[in-house]
Design a binder for these strands. Structure first.
Lengths: 177, 177
DNA sequence: TAGAGTAGAGAACGATCATTCTCAGCGCCA
DNA sequence: TGGCGCTGAGAATGATCGTTCTCTACTCTA
């Protein structure tokens, strides 16, 4: 197993564990056990846990936005498709809210790299929505609905929060359109 | 100092510290130092840290909802006043988002009492909004906006997220009214 | 005033965990 | 073949922290 494959395995294990249990609740030993990569090599790839956390967030950001983008694009870039995608996500087994919001809650004073990763993710999602609808104001309103639905779905466990947000989005789009 | 006063001091210290730094980042020693209550008495009042966390959340829930309710009530129970209150909150020094959302992110598998406190807070806020506007659907839509604005204001540090949500709420209210 | 009970200060204990170290094995090149 | 360097396994280290324990001082009561 070369260093590249080790890094991939580590990131996959880290994403599974960190997302499911929270970053602080997962020890490096657990990452080693799940990935099958020795501690020594783990620390060669990621000199400290924070580096692994940062890489986990960056990777998740790309996968998450990529999945949303592809889904919505396949539906003609209809803004309402965003909420259909959300509902699918909320209904996935193991759904536990937004990894970035959760990490924000977890770290009162996050390491600089982690704080940047969190903010950047939100900035990129906002930018994506701004490209999807005319008007910054409208995009920002939809963004608030997306974030609110995600938080509520995580806490209540009800994927139907996506439908509520979708109805609101429909009204906002009609008013603006 | 009797036991009642000790409990109050402990709860005040716990709220300051837990909200500012996160629950896990704050040790019992820090609570003792800030409250001036000895460890022995701390453990008499709250047999375990989880009990203190639970009490902190319950207390914060009541204060938070009380403050919102009073503010909105003083403005004729205008639903839009909710967003004015939010903006004030977001602009407070030390604002760091919703304590319940943060706690949810912090604990992958929260102790039962803590999970209940988080869910109950959201249920009560939802019920409050349902009393403020006609139609469950509309109230739930506003709720999503409230939560989304709170999360985004915390991460971006921009109290203006409240204005964005307010504009959306205005459109939704007009459409329904 | 003697003694019982309680309080506070802070040390001690035990667990967890990030990080580093040890050691035995194995490939690789002279 | 022989030693050099790298590897994985897992023990060791050092720090943090929830919780409990010790000890001394003080406050009541008889």
């Amino acid at each position: 197993m070369d260093s590249t494959e080790a890094a991939v395995r580590l990131l996959e294990a880290a994403e599974d564990l960190f997302y499911a249990h929270g970053v602080q609740a997962v020890g490096m030993d657990a990452v080693r056990d799940r990935s099958g990569v020795s501690l020594k090599r783990l620390y060669q790839c990621f000199p400290a846990k924070n580096d692994l956390v940062e890489a986990y967030l960056l990777r998740r950001d790309e996968r998450w936005r990529g999945s949303l983008r592809d889904f919505v694009h396949a539906r003609g870039d209809d803004p309402l498709a965003v909420f259909a995608w959300l509902k699918n996500w909320f209904a996935e087994p193991g759904f536990r809210g937004c990894a970035f919001i959760n990490s924000f809650g977890e770290f009162g004073e996050p390491a600089p790299g982690i704080a940047v990763a969190i903010r950047r993710h939100k900035d990129e999602v906002r930018a994506y929505l701004r490209g999807l609808v005319p008007g910054r104001g409208l995009a920002d309103q939809l963004f608030a609905l997306v974030e609110g639905a995600t938080v509520l779905a995580a806490i209540t466990g009800d994927p139907g929060e996506a439908d509520t947000a979708r109805e609101a989005a429909k009204v906002l789009l009609a008013a603006q359109g």
